[in-house]
Amino acid sequence: MRQFRIAVLGGDGIGPEVIAEGLRVLRAVERDMKETTFVVEEHTAGAGEYLRSGDPLPDSTMQACREADAILLGAMGLPAVRYPDGKEIAPQLDLRERLELYAGVRPVRLYHPLHTPLRDHAPGSIDFVLFRESTEGMFWSRRNTYARNAAEVVDLLRISRSGSERLFRAAFREARRRKGRLTLIDKANVLPAMAYFRMIFDEVAREFPDVETDRVYVDAAALYLVRDPGRFDVLVTENLFGDILSDLAAGLVGGMGMAPSGDIGDRHALFQPAHGSAPDIAGKGVANPVAAILSVAMMLDWLGAAETRAAAGRVWSAVEAVCSDPQNRTPDLGGSMSTSAMGSRILDAL
Rank of each mutant, 00 (worst) to 15 (best):
M194R: 01
T308W: 01
M258C: 05
F208Y: 15
L156D: 11
V218F: 04
G180W: 02
E212T: 13
F128Q: 08
H268K: 15
T339H: 08
L240Q: 13
P56M: 01
A221G: 07
K187E: 01
M62S: 12
R132H: 02
S340N: 10
E67D: 15
R227M: 08
P229C: 07
R198K: 12
P84K: 10
D247W: 06
E203H: 00
V190P: 06
D247A: 07
L26R: 04
G86W: 03
G285D: 02
A68I: 05
F128P: 11
P273D: 13
R166C: 05
A305N: 13
A318Q: 13
A274F: 09
M33D: 03
L78Q: 03
P192E: 02
A195F: 04
G22T: 04
M62N: 07
G163N: 03
V190N: 00
S336V: 15
H112C: 10
A312L: 08
T61H: 12
S60G: 08
I89N: 03
F128D: 06
D202N: 13
T145H: 11
Y50V: 05
R148C: 07
A282H: 11
A291S: 14
M62F: 14
I244R: 01
K34Q: 14
L184V: 00
M76Q: 11
A80C: 05
D202P: 03
A222D: 03
D59Q: 15
R161I: 00
E21N: 00
